[in-house]
C-alpha cells in the first residue's frame, strides 16, 4: 500500500465528479473531462462487514467495505483495513495497493482505507 490519492474525472462542462470509467458525462453527456485527484483523507458514509465473501476473496473469512466522501465531494468505495470501532462520519486515510489474486491468479489492486 503506497499511493494515497485516487484519480477521478470532473466534467469540463457541468462540473460533475465521476468515476474515470465514464466516457460521456453521466449528467450532461459531455465528453471532455479534467483529471481530479482526491485528498488523502476522507469521511466514512456507510459500511458493512462482509462474512460471506465471493470466491475471489476465498482466503478471507470477513472484511469491511465502506463508502467514503472526500472534502471535494468525490465519493468512492473500498475495503477498510479494520473491522472494529467503525463509525459513520469517522476519518479514514486512503491507501491503494494489492487486495487479492483473482480466480485466474492475477493480482487485483484497489483501495483499502485505514482508520487514523
Amino acid at each position: 500500500m503506497s499511493e494515497t490519492t485516487i484519480i477521478w474525472k470532473k466534467c469540463k462542462k457541468c462540473g460533475k465528479l465521476q468515476h474515470p470509467d465514464h466516457l460521456r458525462c453521466i449528467q450532461c453527456k459531455n465528453t471532455t473531462f479534467n483529471i481530479v485527484k482526491s485528498s488523502e483523507d476522507c469521511k466514512l458514509l456507510t459500511y458493512t462487514i462482509l462474512t460471506a465473501p465471493p470466491s475471489e476473496y476465498r482466503d478471507k473469512k470477513s472484511y469491511a467495505i465502506g463508502v467514503v466522501e472526500y472534502s471535494n465531494g468525490l465519493k468512492a468505495i473500498g475495503q477498510i483495513k479494520s473491522q472494529e470501532n467503525l463509525k459513520i462520519g469517522m476519518k479514514l486515510r486512503t491507501k491503494v495497493g494489492k487486495l487479492t489474486n483473482n480466480l485466474d491468479g492475477v493480482i487485483i489492486f484497489g483501495i483499502k482505507y485505514e482508520p487514523f
Binding site: 458493512t48 462487514i49 462482509l50 470466491s55 473500498g78 475495503q79 487486495l99 484497489g110
Partner: peptide, 29 residues
C-alpha cells in the same frame, strides 16, 4: 462463494467488484 461471485459479476467491475463487493454487501451498506 461461487454463487455470490457469479451474481456479483453484475456489479461495476472497476469500482465495486474488484473490492470484493457482493450483492448482500450492497444490501448491508
Amino acid at each position: 462463494g461461487s454463487i455470490t461471485s457469479a451474481i456479483a459479476t453484475i456489479t461495476h467491475h472497476n469500482a465495486e467488484r474488484i473490492h470484493g463487493i457482493s450483492l448482500p454487501s450492497l444490501g448491508g451498506l
